[in-house]
Every structure is written in C-alpha cells, then in structure tokens.
Amino acid sequence: MSDTANKASPHGAHDEHGDPYAHIHVSSWQTLVAVFVALVLLTSLTVYVATYDIGRFELAVAMGIATIKCALVMGFFMHLKYDRALNRMVFLGSILFFTLFLGITVIDLDSSKPDIESYRRENPVKTAPATEESKPSGEATKPGDPKKSGEPGQHQKQK
C-alpha cells in the first residue's frame, strides 16, 4: 500500500533533488477514509456483540475488537506503518511494560482473593458507608434512631 501522494520517498536519505524534507510521509485520503469506515464498523460490532450474553468470553472479545481498532489507528492514522522501526520499538516497549505491570499485579491480587473475600463475608457492611454522613439533610442529629446506634459496630460487626 504505497500512499505517497507526492514525490517524497517514505523515509531514508535525501533524494537526488536535495530536498531536505523528503522524509515526510503523506497518507492518501482514500486510506484515511477506509480506515475510518473500518473503525465505525468495528465499533458497531462490539456494541452488537455486547447485547448477547457470551459469558466469560465477553471481555476477551471486547478487548480483541478494541485491539484491532487500536492497531488500525496506530498503523494508519499515526503512520506507524511507515515510521521508523525505532518508534515502533518504543511503542511496543511501552506495551510490554504495561503488560508486566498489569499482569503481575493481577496475578498477585487474584491469589489474595480468599483472604479478602473471607474478610468481607465476616465483616459485612450494613448500610452504604456514606449514608450517615453525607445525607444532605441534617438528620444525623435527630434523636430518632437510638436503637440503631446501639448495635455493635456499624462498619465492623463483632464476630
């Protein structure tokens, strides 16, 4: 797909005419529009798929479609397809570290699940935490709920 709309070569050395800006790559408008149409179609697809219950594949499918959209934007709108290999490496490097960060953290907290779940089970919250305090009305000082406050521990129920 060679979209160079003017005489400039994709990149590399100065051409024979001595044009110092010969390295600039120009995309054709047809390519841009085609990419946009593909992106719109993929968006529709992901919304459409989400209306069906496909269980555990839901996240994988949604992320798969998003990744394809991402690749299209990066490749054509951001010219990464025609850019220097170094810039591609820079970008891929960031994705690698992103994955490492997210991956290891999720692995760890996932295996802490039992400790967190048992704590939540044994220490349930009775009301939404903010309701006592951030109720806009001044009900907090109304002496209407004495028994409620007598219960041991609003946040931390005694075992």
Partner: peptide
C-alpha cells in the same frame, strides 16, 4: 446514649474543632 453512639460510630457527630480521626473500635 450519646457516649455509646460516639464510641461505636465516632464520626456520626463530630464535636466542633475536632477531626474525624477516631478509629471505629471492635468493643463488645
């Protein structure tokens, strides 16, 4: 009544000039 409430739900009524710093205790 007030003392009981303040011990169990310390942040429900804050005395003027003090922050909501008292921890919720697990007293019987």
């Amino acid at each position: 009544q007030y003392l009981r409430e303040s011990i169990i739900q310390p942040h429900k009524k804050l005395v003027k000039g003090y922050g909501a710093v008292m921890p919720v205790t697990q007293l019987k």
